[in-house]
Amino acid sequence: MSDTASALGKRRFEAGDIIFMEGDPGTETFLIQTGRVGLMKRGADGLFEPLATLGPGQVFGEMALATKRPRAAGARALEDCQVIAVSRAHIDEKLKDADPFIAALFRILAGNLESTLDRKREVERAGRPRTDAVLKGRQEALDRAMDDLTGA
């Protein structure tokens, strides 16, 4: 039970606290219980541009659970707030005990999410995505996940 409490932790932030910075490694997803959080991105001129304001019941930092990418934006408490932080270690533990179908499904979706993000980045950079080569690589990872699904 104490493992759950520490992995699924309640955190308090004071107004102005930086919760995480753009570019930080992301290992936790946050659910806001009370208070408001502002997301921001560093613009071309080096100044922070506000992206969104989130309130109770909303989630931020969710990419961290599915991918290993650094934070795409920074998050700061706009007022005193209480959040629940879910770590990837917590999810990995849960997946170990989960039905193999669910674990396989999770891996497949995480892989698809990575592909979708890759593709978006490719399109934004070059105006034309690689298709089959990138996706074949992903497919190998998916095939392994599929073995669990079909009980192979």
């Binding site: 997803t29 989630v59 969710e62 599915a66 917590h90 849960k94 999770f106 995480a110 698809n112």
Partner: peptide, 15 residues
């Protein structure tokens, strides 16, 4: 597990 389920739904929404 409800947390796993929530994350699955979140990933779909993100995709």
């Amino acid at each position: 597990d409800p947390v796993v389920r929530t994350v699955i739904l979140m990933m779909i929404r993100m995709i």
